[in-house]
Design a protein around this nucleic acid. Structure first.
Lengths: 137, 137
DNA sequence: TATAATGTCTCTAGCGACTATAGCTTCAAG
DNA sequence: CTTGAAGCTATAGTCGCTAGAGACATTATA
């Protein structure tokens, strides 16, 4: 049996976050000690690791909830899990594209400024005047 | 003089967002009509365009507030504006890197699953077992 | 000019995924 | 037995909006 601090250390999920996950219904309310403190089993530790991993990969709480539900029924088709992963993958790819466009615009703006005072600063001029942009965003 | 809806149309910033910016101190409270509705001048429209552009580039409200303050003093050195742009650029680049690592991890997970049922699903296995990862995240 | 339609007003609450704080109780080590 | 760390609940704050309610203002049409 582990205390909340122990599973926090082992999984890397912060203590208040664990309680938050419990509140959100991602993990069940665990047993309690005589003094009303949470006591977790290995199974619950594993679940929390699963959640941590999925969160690190950027999956939303809702998506993770779905995966947990799927995982609880090992004989259902796994198309659901596949779909969740692929949808998330698509959104990650989209986000990367967006950020890359921003990166090029921003680096152009940031490196173009050789002025000494704000009056002539390219950063501020570029932000004020959309026509200085190279693509539309 | 423009109504809030008119500057919303011209800048692409939604009406409630304009009021929110006013509340946050990004823009000053404008004049009011006899019936207590906001009335904006061209100058305020330009400022809002500036803000919109900076937000589209991902700058935070705080960073934009700093830029506006800088812009109000045209004879100060523009190192501040440069710093803000470059800091943001660095954080965008970092974020892109992170997302690219996620993308590769996630695409590996998503395309490896050929199982029919959850019990054998690679998506769920990979999320449960960190050792299946190719790099650490 | 009357009325209808649209726009605007303030205020409050909600989103997602936590994080922080306050004031208390319990636990483990010395 | 004392002390200090860890845990408890409950509430509020973060960011950048967005949505809704219910009232008032303005504009367009009949």
């Amino acid at each position: 049996m582990f205390s909340i601090g122990q599973i926090s250390n082992r999984t890397g999920v912060k203590v208040p976050t664990i309680r938050y996950y419990e509140q959100m219904g991602l993990i069940d309310a665990p047993e309690r000690s005589e003094g009303n403190q949470r006591r977790y089993s290995k199974k619950e530790l594993d679940l929390l690791s699963f959640i941590k991993h999925a969160r690190d990969l950027g999956l939303s709480i809702d998506a993770i909830r779905d995966l947990i539900r799927l995982n609880a029924h090992p004989d259902t088709p796994c198309a659901g899990a596949d779909r969740i992963a692929n949808e998330h993958l698509a959104s990650v790819r989209l986000r990367i594209q967006q950020l890359q466009r921003l990166e090029s615009e921003l680096s152009r703006i940031a490196k173009s400024c050789k002025a000494g005072v704000v009056k002539d600063c390219y950063v501020i001029r570029a932000l004020s005047d959309h026509s200085l942009c190279q693509d539309d965003h």
